[in-house]
């Protein structure tokens, strides 16, 4: 019983971390969207790098999450892959009440992140296609081919 309480507390802490991470991701995505609309490639690079760093922190959290799920599965003698936050909260009974609440908050937060990420990704992809099309058009006009493919230097004024 004491082990369950310990594992639930650790899971609660992890969910708190995840909530904070999603909040940061949300902020970074908004900043990225702003940079994309500002058309400043350097700012876009900067924001993308920040987002990349944030995403990298998710690897550690995922490992921690898998470890907690493995220990809970062993405790309840079920495969860890079958566990979800709602089944964990239900199995934990009273101890799982906070997990249930955190799950609701996290679900809402992740949904926001996913929604914003899809929109911003679409925006970035659209911008990228604009530039790509123009570049292709210009290269075709001056007969230089796609420098991105062949890596040759271009003297466009020649």
């Amino acid at each position: 019983m004491k082990e369950l309480q310990t594992l639930v507390r650790h899971l609660e802490a992890h969910l708190q971390d995840e909530l904070a991470a999603q909040e940061r991701t949300l902020g970074l995505l908004e900043a990225e969207e702003h940079a994309l609309r500002g058309r400043d490639p350097h700012l876009v690079f900067e924001r993308t790098t920040a987002l990349e760093r944030e995403l990298a922190t998710g690897v550690g959290r995922a490992r921690r999450r898998e470890e907690l799920l493995a220990r809970l599965g062993a405790l309840w003698r079920v495969p860890p892959a079958t566990l979800t936050l709602s089944s964990i909260a239900e199995r934990a009974g009273v101890e799982g009440e906070r997990i249930r609440r955190l799950r609701g908050e996290l679900r809402e937060r992740v949904a926001k992140v996913v929604k914003l990420a899809r929109r911003v990704a679409t925006l970035a992809r659209t911008h990228q296609r604009f530039f790509s099309d123009v570049l292709q058009s210009l290269f075709a006009t001056i007969g230089a081919g796609d420098v991105r493919q062949n890596g040759s230097l271009l003297d466009a004024e020649a």
């Binding site: 690079f45 998710g58 979800t84 996290l106 996913v114 990704a121 970035a124 992809r125 911008h127 123009v134």
Partner: peptide, 30 residues
């Protein structure tokens, strides 16, 4: 400038897509 912008948007699109995929994965746990 244009190529730089194109690459920046491309990179941004990829990372944001990863971000969305991670969110999807997380949603499955929820």
């Amino acid at each position: 400038n244009m190529m730089t912008a194109e690459q920046a948007y491309n990179a941004a699109a990829q990372f944001i897509r990863v971000s969305a995929e991670l969110g999807d994965e997380l949603m499955r746990l929820l």
